[in-house]
Amino acid sequence: MFDILAAAGGAAAEAPPAWINWLPIIGMILIFWFLIIRPQMKRTKEHQQKVAGLKKGDQVVTAGGLVGKIAKVDDDYVHIDLAQGVRVKAIKQTIGDVIPPGGSAAND
């Protein structure tokens, strides 16, 4: 009689397979990948393409919020005309965005 009760109690206390315990962690990793990491990688790639495509005459906005027109493009730097007679040298990676030709003029 005790053997039957012991067998029934042992079956009820049996733990689920170990891989089931990892399912919530794997699910969280997948959620982070699709909602945070993947979109950030896409934005970074788009920014690198914009920076690689900079050319003289493009109107740009720097990461600091300065708006100007590119006067010269080097390998790592761009020279930006902010106003008449005001030219700054900026690192290419600090260019935040390129203003489309229909945007407002920076050097009025």
Results as ranks from 00 to 15, higher is better:
2 F>Q: 11
2 F>Y: 09
2 F>K: 12
3 D>W: 14
3 D>I: 07
3 D>R: 14
4 I>Y: 10
4 I>H: 01
5 L>K: 12
6 A>T: 01
8 A>R: 14
9 G>L: 15
10 G>S: 00
12 A>Y: 09
13 A>K: 11
14 E>P: 00
14 E>M: 02
14 E>A: 08
14 E>I: 02
14 E>F: 04
14 E>K: 14
15 A>S: 06
17 P>E: 08
17 P>I: 01
17 P>V: 03
19 W>D: 15
20 I>R: 01
20 I>P: 03
21 N>E: 05
21 N>T: 05
21 N>G: 09
23 L>N: 03
23 L>K: 08
23 L>V: 13
25 I>F: 12
25 I>C: 06
25 I>M: 01
27 G>D: 11
28 M>H: 10
28 M>V: 15
28 M>F: 15
29 I>P: 06
30 L>Y: 11
31 I>A: 15
32 F>N: 08
32 F>S: 13
33 W>E: 09
34 F>D: 10
34 F>S: 07
34 F>H: 13
36 I>W: 10
36 I>T: 13
37 I>P: 07
37 I>V: 15
37 I>E: 06
37 I>G: 09
38 R>G: 11
38 R>S: 14
39 P>A: 08
39 P>M: 12
40 Q>A: 12
40 Q>D: 07
41 M>W: 14
42 K>A: 12
42 K>F: 13
43 R>D: 05
43 R>T: 05
43 R>I: 08
43 R>V: 10
44 T>S: 02
44 T>I: 05
45 K>T: 03
46 E>Y: 05
46 E>A: 09
46 E>K: 03
47 H>Y: 05
48 Q>A: 00
48 Q>K: 06
48 Q>E: 03
49 Q>G: 05
49 Q>C: 01
50 K>R: 02
52 A>N: 02
53 G>A: 09
53 G>V: 00
56 K>G: 05
57 G>W: 02
57 G>A: 05
57 G>T: 03
57 G>Q: 07
57 G>I: 07
58 D>V: 07
58 D>L: 07
60 V>Y: 07
62 T>V: 02
63 A>I: 05
65 G>Q: 00
65 G>H: 00
65 G>A: 11
65 G>I: 01
67 V>Y: 11
67 V>D: 04
68 G>P: 10
68 G>M: 04
68 G>A: 07
69 K>W: 07
75 D>I: 05
77 Y>A: 10
78 V>T: 01
80 I>H: 06
81 D>W: 02
81 D>C: 12
81 D>Y: 08
83 A>Q: 13
84 Q>H: 04
85 G>L: 00
85 G>C: 06
86 V>Q: 09
87 R>I: 15
87 R>S: 12
88 V>G: 10
88 V>C: 07
88 V>I: 15
89 K>E: 08
90 A>G: 02
90 A>S: 12
91 I>S: 06
91 I>W: 15
91 I>G: 12
91 I>K: 15
93 Q>V: 09
93 Q>G: 02
94 T>F: 14
95 I>M: 14
96 G>N: 08
97 D>K: 00
97 D>M: 04
98 V>M: 09
98 V>C: 09
98 V>P: 04
98 V>Q: 04
99 I>M: 13
99 I>F: 10
100 P>L: 00
102 G>S: 04
104 S>W: 03
105 A>Q: 05
105 A>W: 13
106 A>R: 04
107 N>F: 05
108 D>T: 04
